[in-house]
């Protein structure tokens, strides 16, 4: 009687409901866990032929082929190792391009295959279904434990940047690496965003011609916030002391320029910006040289392409 009167939901949950997918996934995970536990039980009872992996098996899989070499599978080991290294080198050489991504993907596949081979050699059951399942787990583990942290770190320390247009000393298509984790310091060559600015360059007549400046540029930080800078005839004085720092293209600078760097700004003379030359007014130079700290994207430290000019950027 109590039950008949109680407020009970009498409609069962359905597979198409919101929780249906979750129930299926949890069921799948449960079944994997159950099977592993059953296998463990069989292994303990000696009913399943399984040997514990040799010591160091796990960390050796960080480099593909190393585990194979350890147990004397030389051909497999060297094949995995060399092919992986070749593709890693290519992916680094072509970093920041579509080819680079493809090479990295192939390197990851080789790594995953090598690790899967190790796992399957040790696994008590080697059916196709187990192999497919193990390949997913191994790939996910490799990606989560090794590749994701490395890619995450690299995406801050070595962001590849391809030059869309020629900008002294770089040419269109050149690729440089940018480190966004390094705090900006005077003397560093950095990638920064130019302040959006227009300049009227009309000399005479009624028709006005404007130069519009915007976009990302690469140049050297000359001074930090609060410093007083005097540029006079190709020599630089910072806070009254002469300095060896030079913008990347000193010839483009005006004859004399005096600037005091406000707080949260850096002084970067935009000498690599096309059409910035000594003819432009000094006020405009000052405006374009004071870059807010937030507009400095990171330090440019290495050029990866073209191959003929690989090396550090100075």
């Amino acid at each position: 009687m109590v039950l008949a009167a109680s407020d009970l939901d009498v409609n069962p949950p359905r597979a198409r409901d919101r929780g249906g997918a979750f129930r299926r996934i949890s069921l799948y995970i449960h079944s994997i866990g159950r099977r592993l536990m059953e296998d463990l039980h069989l292994i303990r009872g000696g009913q399943l032929d399984w040997k514990a992996p040799p010591p160091g098996f796990l960390w050796r899989n960080i480099i593909p082929g190393l585990s194979h070499l350890q147990v004397g599978q030389r051909l497999k080991g060297w094949s995995y190792l060399t092919s992986f290294l070749v593709f890693v080198v290519f992916s680094l050489l072509y970093l920041g391009t579509a080819s680079g991504s493809i090479f990295l993907g192939v390197a990851f596949s080789i790594h995953s295959t090598a690790a899967l081979d190790c796992v399957m050699q040790l696994a008590p059951r080697t059916s196709m279904l187990n192999r497919i399942g193990a390949s997913f787990v191994v790939s996910a583990l490799l990606f989560g434990v090794l590749y994701f942290p490395v890619i995450f770190a690299m995406s801050h320390v070595a962001i590849p940047r391809e030059m869309e247009e020629a900008s002294y000393p770089f040419k269109a298509g050149d690729v440089v690496l940018v480190n966004s984790w390094r705090s900006p310091q005077p003397g560093q060559i950095v990638l920064y965003e130019l302040p959006n600015a227009n300049q009227d360059i009309t000399n005479y007549g009624h028709r006005h011609t404007y130069l519009q400046f915007y976009g990302d540029r690469i140049d050297r930080i000359i001074a930090a916030p609060g410093q007083k800078v005097v540029w006079d005839d190709q020599t630089l004085k910072i806070d009254g002391k002469s300095s060896g720092l030079q913008p990347m293209k000193p010839d483009a600078m005006p004859q004399r320029l005096e600037v005091t760097v406000p707080a949260d700004h850096y002084l970067i003379f935009p000498t690599t910006t096309p059409l910035m030359d000594e003819k432009l007014p000094l006020e405009f130079w000052e405006k374009m040289s004071l870059i807010p700290a937030g507009s400095v994207r990171g330090a440019v430290y290495f050029q990866t392409r073209p191959f003929s000019r690989i090396g550090s950027v100075k």
Binding site: P12, G20, R23, L27
Partner: peptide
């Protein structure tokens, strides 16, 4: 019968 086994188990 409808193949909704996790739901059947839950119910």
């Amino acid at each position: 019968m409808l193949g909704e086994y996790p739901e059947a188990e839950l119910w």
